[in-house]
Design a binder for these strands. Structure first.
Length: 720
DNA sequence: AAGGCAAATGTTTTT
DNA sequence: CATTTGCCTT
């Protein structure tokens, strides 16, 4: 494909960003301004116009999904030649380097990745081994501390506790944790980056090699990078690479997990000769939605400042619905979804966004009741499910008998008579001799250390594993997974579980085998397929189901980032829920909540609903919240308050009911979805109302004449 | 060692 | 309300 095609259809700013030469580029890209487009076209332009080899390009995204999308879009433009480009998340790229240079990085060749659950488990173990009170030193907090230090590039020996007893203890935990990781070659997520950073710092030759190789570095979602990722980037860029970063400070919503928006501000200072390019034209939302979002975000002090504009039409006003309670809220949303679907909107074009996952339940129930298919994003991902991790523990143990984490997990599930006391003895033996749990078990069995019951159980377990190991030789990946699932006894174990849960788990195990069958193994990545698969399971906890499924999309505001929908509902717009009560004290956190609100609003292309409930059942007790401050921050001419004028009158309170009864009279008994007759246009269905009193208008889809807006007082509609 | 019951405890999420 | 954790019993 030629350059013209690549530059075709770009606006002047996008064009400037795509074709910028001699220096770095900081693209401040507002919501819906085409930032992914800029990145994709930039890469395509580098390859076709500048004749850069994909081999010399490094592109970083935040999720594997984004990486996948970007790769396929680039390939669409330039063809398969982009295969050799390094494109992935910070973590997957660091992982790749560590696999290639494991020796220089001080790791074992078969080093294992700890996901956050594994990490937490290990931290907990460390705390116990240090004889600390788990109540006083919660493992979660210690884990948070360790990751925080690593993100600042700090190893235990870099840290001075200045006699502070709390820091001293946390440091001790960090130290012990690191020692175990080093000894067993375990690498947690943050460690992937830190280790890789250290690898490059300590190996100038290697660093030089990569600096020479990556002449172009591109980073998406730059506002979400943390200090360590930024340091890694600067290191790799050296003095010669051209770096392009794309981000939006107004969409920084991950400050709470270490992301530093400051990286955007600092960028121009660190990378001299930076072109700053602002993408401010929004191609997504109507003017009303964009104006409202702009106005809300303008309440933030701490901004780089930009103003999004659009050439789109004004569009519908934002509708604000005051619900009586969360059930009423859900029913309103459901009714409006039905209405939109009648207008011909596909279910997948509709999203319901909320602040926290607990809110999804009521919505689900309401949707279920009227039979609208829906899909919930988030929650537990595939490879994070307990049954999957259980099965994988067997695979890992077969693959490497000295994988202690796998040993601990496999020995526990299904229960086989090996309990805490036995395991404690094994752990103690392993610790004192610095050997793996597997070897410790062998030794203790040999010296007849256990009671006959424990001896029996352990012998059986070791035999099970070695037998599986023997049978696993020369098996395909999926056959190996099948072996693990079949022989581990997990299926009968889950069958005992009451309810449908057990069945679901067994189905997931079957799916795991399929996953192995479909696993796309790129032999180029020069690691054994099993290592690649296990890394895949740890690093990509499983793409959630296919997007094209025709269902209403339910998700948190956080997971909505980067997506867009013609119709968006944001529910639970209440003080304490959104902004969340944990954030109310801190103005900085309030600003992050406001950015989250901005992100949510800018997801909507055509129509946005904001709803709040006067009273809400949360954690089992009734709460009454004030409407969210973000509602008050809406410009008055951008929204209207709406009421539900349809079937659910029975559910509302007596007060509400009165209000609705009077509405019904004004409407002359007309309701949404009702069939009516018009003298000229014939029969049709009511789709919508707009305005009040004499200006009240009704939208009707006539069977023969199409959809029309009519002034209610003139139309003389007769219910059929 | 394992299952059952009471108590505690509730953001946002990727890797 | 619902899930997870920890203690206690068998």
């Amino acid at each position: 494909m030629n350059t013209d095609t690549i530059l075709h259809n770009l606006n002047p700013e996008q064009h400037a960003a795509v074709t910028a030469e001699n220096g770095h580029v900081l693209v401040l890209a507002g919501a819906g301004s085409g930032k992914t487009r800029v990145l994709v076209h930039r890469i395509a332009w580098l390859i076709t116009d500048r004749c850069e080899s994909p081999h010399n390009i490094l592109a970083v995204t935040f999720t594997n999904k984004a990486a996948g999308e970007m790769r396929s879009r680039v390939e669409e433009l330039v063809g398969l030649s982009a295969r050799r480009m390094w494109l992935g998340t910070f973590h997957s790229l660091a992982h790749r380097m560590l696999r290639m240079h494991w020796h220089e990085a001080g790791l074992a060749e078969n080093f294992q990745i700890l996901d956050s659950e594994d990490q937490l488990r290990l931290v907990r173990r460390v705390i116990r081994e240090l004889n600390l009170d788990e109540k006083q030193w919660p493992a979660k907090q210690a884990q948070w501390y360790i990751n925080g230090q690593k993100e600042e590039g700090l190893r235990p020996h870099h840290i001075d506790h200045y006699g502070d007893p709390s820091t001293r203890t946390l440091l001790k935990i960090y130290q012990a944790y690191d020692a175990i990781c080093q000894q067993s070659s375990l690498v947690d997520f943050t460690e992937l980056l830190l280790r890789c950073h250290e690898l490059l710092v300590n190996n100038p030759a290697l660093l030089q090699h990569y600096q020479q190789r990556f002449k172009h570095i591109l980073v998406d979602e730059f506002q979400d990078t943390n200090s360590l990722q930024y340091a890694w980037l600067r290191l790799l860029a050296g003095d010669t690479a051209w770096v392009m970063v794309v981000g939006d400070d107004d969409q920084s919503i991950y400050g709470w997990r270490g992301a530093k928006v400051e990286n955007i501000q600092q960028f121009s200072a660190h990378f001299i000769d930076t072109h700053v390019i602002r993408l401010e034209q929004n191609y997504r939302s109507t003017k009303v939605i964009l104006d409202a979002a702009n106005h809300v975000i303008s309440h933030n002090q701490d901004r780089l400042g930009k103003n999004l504009w659009t050439e789109m039409r004004e569009g519908d006003l934002i509708s604000v619905y005051n619900a009586y309670n969360e059930v009423d809220e859900a029913r309103f949303i459901t009714a409006r979804i039905q209405q939109a679907m009648e207008k011909g909107l596909a279910r997948s074009e509709i999203a319901v966004l909320y602040r926290s996952n607990v809110q999804s339940r009521v919505l689900e129930e309401a949707l279920l009741q009227v039979g609208i298919p829906y899909r919930i994003y988030g929650g537990l991902r595939f490879y994070d499910r307990a049954e999957i991790k259980d099965a994988l523990a067997y695979v890992r143990l077969i693959y490497n008998l000295h994988d202690d984490n796998a040993f601990e997990r496999a020995v526990q599930t299904p229960p086989r008579g090996i309990g805490d006391k036995t395991m404690e003895a094994v752990r103690e033996c392993a610790r004192s001799q610095q050997i793996s749990l597997w070897r410790a078990t062998q030794e203790l069995l040999q010296i007849n250390h256990f009671t006959s019951r424990a001896t029996n159980a352990l012998t059986q377990f070791t035999k099970l594993i070695t037998d599986m190991q023997t049978d696993a030789v020369d098996l395909e990946l999926h056959e190996m997974l099948e072996l693990a699932v079949q022989r581990s006894g997990l299926i009968p174990h889950f069958q005992q579980e009451r309810g449908e849960k057990g069945q679901a788990r067994i189905e997931n195990l079957a799916e795991l085998i399929d996953t192995g069958r479909l696993f796309a193994y790129d032999a180029e990545e020069d690691m054994p397929i099993m290592a690649a698969f296990l890394a895949h399971a740890a690093l990509e906890s499983g793409e959630r189901q296919a997007m094209d499924e025709n269902a209403v999309q339910l998700m948190t505001l956080h997971s909505a980032k980067g997506l867009e929908f013609p119709l968006v509902f944001m529910c639970g717009m209440e003080e304490g829920l959104f902004p969340h009560y944990m954030c109310l004290q801190d103005p900085r956190q309030i600003e992050e909540e406001r950015r989250l609100c901005y992100v949510g609003m800018t997801r909507a292309r055509q129509k946005l609903y904001l709803t709040f409930a006067e009273s809400r059942r949360l954690h089992g007790s009734e709460t009454r919240n004030r409407p969210s401050r973000f509602l008050r921050e809406l410009p008055p001419d951008c929204y209207e308050e709406v009421r539900l004028r349809s079937q659910n009158i029975k559910a509302a309170s007596p007060l509400k009911r009165l209000a609705m009864d009077s509405d019904a009279i004004n409407d002359e008994g007309l309701m949404l979805g009702q069939r009516v007759y018009h003298q000229l246009f014939g029969e049709g269905v009511i789709l919508d109302f707009e305005g009040d009193g004499a200006h009240r208008r009704v939208q009707v889809r006539f069977d023969k004449q199409g959809t029309k807006w009519l002034v209610a007082s003139f139309a003389k509609l007769v219910p059929v």
